[in-house]
Design a protein around this nucleic acid. Structure first.
Length: 733
RNA sequence: GCUAGCGUAGCUCAACGGCAGAGUACCGGUUUUGUAAACCGGUGGUUGUGGGUUCAAAUCCCACCGCUAGCUCCA
């Protein structure tokens, strides 16, 4: 007899080989048919798996999962990934399978297939999947030892699975498989009991992916799909996807003339059109006022700086590949730079660099006017490198600035600093340039030239906690000011297993990470820790902000840095008359103006609140007889600081109203004969519609109040079903 | 950077080897209007760029530039 303990504490007896399905059937047939999976001793597992096999614990703690449990969705989707893979294998023989995990909203399967799958193939694949679902075959689990498993997958010509068993699963004594009809796949599971449980599914897209995420590895095709327990859930999900599409900042940015990216200017270089620039300027003015109130000092620094400075900070060597190439004063600059890198590769890992090739470089350099009489041609590679490095440092070498911090460090160093001066808080909307990979560029969200709402705080070690705390408060405040109150904080730490990616000492890192934990805990801000997400010079707290349709964006960041002060030998004189080293805090509440504005466009679906709207008010005349009055109204509002225009076209009022609605203007002031007589305006709210006539000054006061309070009225017009992250189930193999 | 798909009027799209078109925007005129589209007329194109195939190329082929999705990356 096997004793099973249900969630309410009841103990029930079952035969030794009983499964969760048997237990469910004994409770009620209806429960049995609703059961998708089971949690046995805390592990999600199949309902058809013998309970005694799944755990040694007695009585067996069992919880049944039905469609209502979020974990069930992950099981369903992973099973649907198998069904999709099976369908693809039926349609195109010779398919090799890689991984097929679930994602937040669905699943994918990576495959190697000689046929290039396109969206045109989706109906065929979906039809084949439907046939498999209709057959309703069970998913059967079985276990093999390593040898059997290798034989099995090799026999099915699944070379990627062979490789995975030999590498990723090298330490597993046994591995599990799932069989469904002719389809057998190496898989950790769990799975739904049978294919009939799939009630609604859809293929979403196909794209490239790399085997095991390695860009130098094999290119695979990744098929994305989603699956739900009802057609209604699927439709609701697709609605949400369409809503996100409707809000696309690239589309709205074009329609509303907010920004443009021109092929002629260059990839990833954003042109802020007057309306977009107005939004940005309003945000910047708001932040600047706030910073002054909080003791920050404005600074400005140039857009380029000497490469040496970025070698000192570490940015140049660390991010070499994603920076614009340096600007060299000497014609041979780029050549010598290449030469040095070849010598470095030769020194560090013996990468071949023939004397003939080096001679060619030397000859070319001479031709370009470089003096090489003293070059130690017969010296060691290190000696040759040092000669060239010395030459390089004597030349003009500038870098388009990829980061503001080294410049702000120089501003700190421009004066002698006393402990009485600290904290020194230097703020700048600093524009930086990064040569992001072309495939990464995306509207305003990922660009090559961006302006950070940057600041660097130079503090004494005693001030770290307090200053860090107040910067977090600032981030919270500015996010709240644009109505973003739903966010979580991520503490991004160093990867403890791969320390070579970071600069500084173990002690410094521990110290910094502990400080951040302490502040977040004291402020009662819930946070999740992520290893390997830190900047190379220090740990970060990143704000992951959720917008009104539930998507998450990484925006603001606050970072603690013990390393740059060390590298730049920063100092202040303490009360003890000794020199001490300050600590730096890097922070950007919005991140970059480009990314933040792009995100806001999508959050508000282009309909900005009054205080941010580029065109706040449009005055429209009923006919040209009232043109003068309309102009008077416009002048009154403009004098009061509003961004106001007039529509004096010979069109009907209906047309003028429609255009203003489409352009998402917050308020329309309609003026006709009655208004001229009574000194009123007829006010129309973009959201509420006609508000009737109001004395001019009353309308002015109403709108002034709305601006002063930065009222936000336009979000959450539509409530979307929240889709819980179903979690990464069953993706180990 | 990689894989796949896509580039036609300012914008949205049609034409898919045989005369490059529609809606909208824009310009001119008529209309003088009270809360989501009045009417008439007109301008606008070396079909992303360069090469090739063909009697003939927006259409087929090649290269480059750019965009999109995903991967990889993100100080």
């Amino acid at each position: 007899m096997l004793q099973v303990k249900l969630p309410d504490g009841t103990i029930v007896d079952h035969p030794d080989h009983a499964t969760a399905y048997d237990v469910a059937s004994a409770i009620s047939p209806r429960l049995a048919s609703a059961a998708i999976g089971a949690v046995v001793a805390g592990q999600v597992t199949d309902i058809l798996r013998p309970l005694s096999e799944a755990t040694d614990e007695r009585p067996v703690p069992l919880q049944l999962l039905t469609e209502k449990d979020p974990a069930s969705l992950a099981i369903l989707r992973h099973s649907c990934a198998h069904i999709m893979a099976r369908a693809v294998m039926r349609l195109w023989p010779g398919v090799e399978l890689a991984f097929g995990p679930t994602t937040g909203h669905g699943y994918y399967y990576d495959i190697a297939c000689s046929h290039t799958i396109s969206e045109d193939d989706f109906p065929r694949i979906e039809a084949e999947m439907q046939r498999i679902v209709d057959m309703g075959e069970p998913f059967e689990r079985f276990i093999c030892d390593r040898e059997e498993a290798l034989k099995l997958v090799d026999g099915m010509s699944q070379s990627l699975k062979v490789e995975h068993i030999n590498t990723g699963l090298a330490t597993h004594p046994t591995v599990s498989f799932y069989r469904q009809g002719e389809f057998v796949d190496l898989c950790r599971g769990p799975h739904i009991p049978d294919a009939k449980r799939v009630k609604a599914f859809k293929l979403l897209s196909v794209a490239g992916a790399y085997w095991k995420g390695d860009a130098s590895g094999k290119q695979l095709q990744r098929l994305y799909g989603t699956a739900w327990f009802s057609q209604k859930d699927l439709d609701s999900y697709l609605d949400q996807v369409n809503e996100a599409k409707r809000r696309d900042h690239r589309v709205l940015g074009k329609q509303l003339n907010l920004f443009a990216i021109s092929q002629e200017v260059g990839q990833g270089l954003c042109l802020w059109l007057p309306k977009g620039a107005t939004i940005r300027a309003t945000l910047e003015d708001f932040i600047k006022r706030e910073l002054i109130a909080r003791g920050y000092q404005p600074v400005y620094s140039p857009h380029i700086g000497r490469v040496d400075m970025y070698e000192t900070s570490g940015h140049f060597p660390y991010y070499r590949e994603s920076q614009f190439a340096p600007i060299f004063g000497h014609d041979a600059g780029a050549l010598v730079d290449y030469w040095v890198r070849r010598l470095e590769a030769l020194i560090t890992d013996g990468t071949a660099f023939s004397p003939e090739d080096e001679k060619k470089l030397a000859d070319s350099a001479k031709l370009m006017g470089m003096e090489l009489a003293d070059f130690p041609s017969n010296g060691t590679p290190t000696a040759r490198k040092e000669f060239l490095r010395t030459w390089e440092k004597q030349q003009e070498r500038y870098l388009l600035k990829p980061m503001n911090c080294p410049h702000h460090v120089q501003i700190y160093k421009a004066q002698q600093r006393s402990y009485r001066d600290l904290p020194v808080r230097l703020a700048e909307f600093g524009t930086v340039y990064r040569h992001e990979q072309s495939g990464e560029l995306n509207g305003m969200l990922r660009v090559r030239g961006l302006t950070q709402d940057d600041a660097h705080l130079f503090v004494t070690p005693d001030q770290v906690l307090e200053e860090f705390k107040s910067t977090l408060e600032l981030v919270k405040f500015v996010l709240a000011s644009v109505g973003l109150n739903d966010y979580r904080v991520q503490l991004s730490c160093r990867d403890s297993k791969n320390k070579s990616k970071y600069v500084g000492t173990d002690e410094g890192w521990e110290n910094a990470q502990n400080s951040l934990r302490k502040v977040l805990t004291e402020m009662q801000m819930p946070f999740v820790e992520r290893e390997g997400e830190a900047a190379f010079y220090g740990p970060k707290t990143d704000f992951m902000v959720r917008d009104c349709i539930g998507r998450e964006w990484q925006l603001g960041t606050v970072q603690l840095d013990f390393n740059l002060p060390e590298r730049f030998q920063l100092e202040y004189v303490g009360a003890d008359n000794q020199t001490h080293r300050p600590v730096m805090i890097h922070r950007a509440p919005f991140g970059s103006m480009e990314r933040f504005t792009g995100m806001l466009i999508e959050h508000f679906a282009g309909a900005f609140p009054l205080w941010l709207a580029p065109e706040q008010i449009r005055v429209m005349s009923i006919s040209d007889k009232f043109e003068d009055y309309a102009k008077q109204v416009e002048a009154r509002f403009r004098a009061a600081g509003f961004r106001v225009t007039t529509d004096l076209r010979g069109a009907k009022i209906n047309a003028k109203v429609r255009d203003a609605q489409v352009e998402l203007i917050p308020y329309m002031l309609i003026v006709g004969g009655r208004d001229v007589e009574n000194g009123t305006v007829s006010i129309r709210d973009r959201i509420e519609g006609d508000l009737g006539a109001m004395p001019l000054e009353a309308a002015l006061t109403k709108l002034q109040n709305e601006v002063a309070e930065r009222t936000i009225r336009q979000v959450s017009e539509k409530k979307f079903q929240q889709f819980d992250e179903a979690g990464e189930a069953a993706n180990e193999y």
